[in-house]
Design a protein around this nucleic acid. Sequence first.
DNA 1: CGCTGTGTTGAATGCCGTCAACGTCGGTGG
DNA 2: CCACCGACGTTGACGGCATTCAACACAGCG
Lengths: 232, 232
Amino acid sequence: MSLDRSLIAGLPGFAGLDAGDLDAVLARARSSRFPKDTEVFAQGAQAGSFFLLLAGHIRVVRTSPEGHQVIARYINEGELFGIAMAMGRTTYPASAVAAVDCVVLTWPNAAWPELQALAPAFGASAYRTIGTRLQETQAQVMEMSTQQVEQRIANALLRIVSQSGKKTPEGIEIDFPITRQDIAEMTGTTLHTVSRLLSAWEGEGLVKSGRQKVVITDPHALMLMADSRRRK
Amino acid sequence: MSLDRSLIAGLPGFAGLDAGDLDAVLARARSSRFPKDTEVFAQGAQAGSFFLLLAGHIRVVRTSPEGHQVIARYINEGELFGIAMAMGRTTYPASAVAAVDCVVLTWPNAAWPELQALAPAFGASAYRTIGTRLQETQAQVMEMSTQQVEQRIANALLRIVSQSGKKTPEGIEIDFPITRQDIAEMTGTTLHTVSRLLSAWEGEGLVKSGRQKVVITDPHALMLMADSRRRK
DNA sequence: CGCTGTGTTGAATGCCGTCAACGTCGGTGG
DNA sequence: CCACCGACGTTGACGGCATTCAACACAGCG
């Protein structure tokens, strides 16, 4: 058999399935590799499949008619993505780009009902995922409405490291390449402002940053930064 | 029987049900009236029920720990709301406040599986609703990232009238009371800025506004305003 | 060795938030 | 009926934060 059960056995959507069920789930899937900076799917394209990220990190990007880009979220290992179909959509609302080399499982939309039948937890888990993302996105709207750029960037960094942080001797590091521009597109600001802030924070010993790399050296101080309310 | 089938017969989630099924759906529901400015449910409260708005308009408000309020959306007649439960949540992530006198159907969470069994379209419709809201919220993030206040307000007004617009001799009117403050909380700005903008637009003949009232007199011109890109 | 992508930093502009004062409408109670 | 009061709305002045414009530095790569 080409795909090993252990790839998905530990995921919440497939908890409690026996070996045969897991094999049946995998039988409908195709595994593929996406090199860094390649698109898994493109915004506006017909949504014929849904995906599960086995390894790597994926950037979900929305592009406005005017060409502005916004990073809606990062997908971590083990997460579903591109589940437009479960939301009753026929096209993908955003593009998915591999932030590093990635391994992805792909199912055709037709497999959705089958997976739900095989794994009762699968549907619930998927819908919970969507619910969580709605929550997070609404929280982001609140942030953008009420917080200064400084705090939004601090929050964004903390959110990333909490999900994709790698401990190093110097602190917690974001374990995929991320540019100032990326951070700007996550927080609705410009790379200039991000650069200035990171430089300032580096001077204060909160972070250490380099080319496409950010290390949080003092998470606690950054958390203070994140919710020190400047506004009334 | 206390509730009439015609209340829900036309809604997408209950399409194609016969009279008996409709009665069964209604049998589990309770109808209640919420006077203007009363809460249907409160942010953070245990989510024991979900709701359908039969008549009126409801404001969904999120309040930050610091006391900032943001209007996440308005609920229109015929829409489900407070469906935290379908997203795997146990508390409501926002408050729902009646913008005018409202009539609301309430089901206990336990009725969710029953409704899905009775009306296969119900589940799909509900999940499509959540998907749509995720979409809209992400679009809002894009707006806030890339557009000026002026365009965000124009877009917000157009979105409202497209859903809750009432034609009048003078133009299209928002058919529930809405204050400058409300518009500010939808767009992440201040009531001062909204007031200035509306005054300016009134001078140019785009809108006519009064106390808790906004009428769009020139929708086309407002649409131009909405996506005239100032930024690069 | 030049080119492209990334990052830094300074200076100037301007949008929009903040502060402040006043005007107006509508409801309420004497 | 009128006076009062609170909620809502308007407008001006000021200033700060972040964008914009610009120039340079540096790394990686063909």
